[in-house]
Structures are given as structure tokens and as C-alpha cells.
Amino acid sequence: MNAAIRVDLQLIADMVSPATRALDVGCGDGSLLAYLVDFKRVDARGMELSQAGVNACVANGLSVIQGDADADLRDYPDDAFDYVILSQTLQATREPREVLRQMLRVGKRAIVSFPNFAHWQVRLRLVFGGRMPETPSLPFKWYDTPNIHLCSIDDFRALCRDMGVRIERAIVLDRASRPINLPPLLANLLGEQAVFMLRRD
């Protein structure tokens, strides 16, 4: 059992109440899943796009299937989970709005983390560099990035308003993945990524 997980995953894990049911969409190597199972007795399931990732998770005793957020959330019945988690994946989905809708149909709550495209570094590189931004949280070239629907923290808040989704918690992280407590305008400038906990209103 390894208790150390990435800081943003730890933040998500802290939002999940013990002994609940959770679905981690885009669970990668399963480190968040394993943490939820081992330390919070969560009935945690995963969905992962890469077959290699799935196989590694299952070989570690985790319940994971191959699938993607756009296509496969539709299968699940309403309220199947207490939480549906989507970490650093929303920006790579074809229809982020529909994915969010499905997450909040399948889960009582949704936890979403994503890189902030309005971070000052991103702004600087585009405005003064004249090039598509490449940062630690957006490490791709424009032609090979999986991120097709990038947004800023304020964009995301606007979408939640538009969808009538209640934001229960919003945590903005700086470059060192430390939570920062700033008014929205500054948070949208200084936050490198954000973690939101949502529920249907």
C-alpha cells in the first residue's frame, strides 16, 4: 500500500466520503482508485481509455473497464454512484458539456479537475510569444495535443451556471499544486489548475 499520490489526486480523494461508491473516469494507472479503496473503503470503479492502463489496474485488483467519457457514461443507470470523478480529462473529451451532464446523471456528485487555460503563463506565451502555450500542465504541441476543449476557470464556472449545476467546492491550485485562496479574477489568472465538486441543483 502506497499512501503517496499526486497532490491534485489527494485533493480529490479528500472530497470523497468514506464507504461510498465512486467512478473514476480516465483513471490512468489507478492510483486514485487504489487510494480510495485502501484508505477510504470506497467501492471504487474505473474507466480508462488505454488498454494497457486498464490491464495494469485490473492486475492490481482494481475494478476497471476500457472505455471513454464521451461514449460509455451513457450505459450507467441514474444515481449509480455517489461520485463520478474526472481528473484532467474534461478538456480531452469531444463533448465536455454532455460529459458533465452524464456525470451528474450517473453520480449524485461530480468531481472535475482541469488545467486553467487563463493561467498567466498561458496568456503570456500566447500574447507575447505568439505561440500556442506549452506549460507543465499543458505539455503538448498544438498538433499532438489530446486537449481539444480547453477552458479557463471562469469559463467552467459559466458553464456550471448555464447548466444549472451547483458548485459545492472549488479549489484552485498554483504551479506547485498548492491550494490558493484568491478572489475569482485573480484565481483565474494565478491558478494553474482547479478542482470542482458539483451537484445537480
Partner: peptide
């Protein structure tokens, strides 16, 4: 999945 079962698939 439609039955919200605990399932792995490899």
C-alpha cells in the same frame, strides 16, 4: 454497467 455492477474488462 447498465446494472451498475462491479466489473473489470481486459
Amino acid at each position: 454497467n447498465a446494472a451498475a455492477a462491479n466489473v473489470s474488462f481486459v
